[in-house]
Amino acid sequence: MAIKTQPVTDSVPKINDEVAVGEDLQFQRRWWAFERWIWMLFALLVLLDLLGAFGRGPLAKKHAEAADGSMKVDYERIERFSTPSILTVSFGKQAIRDGKIQLWVSESLVKKLGNQRIVPQPAASSIGNNGILYTFPASDVPATAEFALSPASPGSAELQMQVPGSSVITLKVFIVP
């Protein structure tokens, strides 16, 4: 089979009508203008990252309190996919009943936020009502429990927490990829 051929033409633009370079300064200047925008975008992204707009910074940290003071939660409203973080729950005096604290959390704690472990370990946990009820032995305040999270998938998540009989806290968390 014959090889397909085509005649050579002077298709590459020349400089000084002697060297075929193919320079296109109009394109080049447009590209440099585009580059300047991209560098500004990169600088903005780095600044936002330093501030924590993509998690792990001051903008990402949030504090929430139950209306009746039964608990306070320090968490990251912007989480990163598969990256460890800590959610801290500080209980109020009224959360301690009969030497123990009970805490109900919605199932998104495990399913979306990927709870890995709880410190201290709860003495008991039971499932039901679309969530988990943890029981911690407790004597007096300050009493805190820490949840080590590692979000399982990107997207938004809503976490609800409640000391039974007290007001509910709803936390909105966005997980970046």
Binding site: I15, N16, V21, E23, L25, F27, Q28
Partner: peptide
């Protein structure tokens, strides 16, 4: 990109 003449 395209070639750029630096010295002419």
């Amino acid at each position: 990109g395209r070639p750029v003449v630096l010295l002419k």
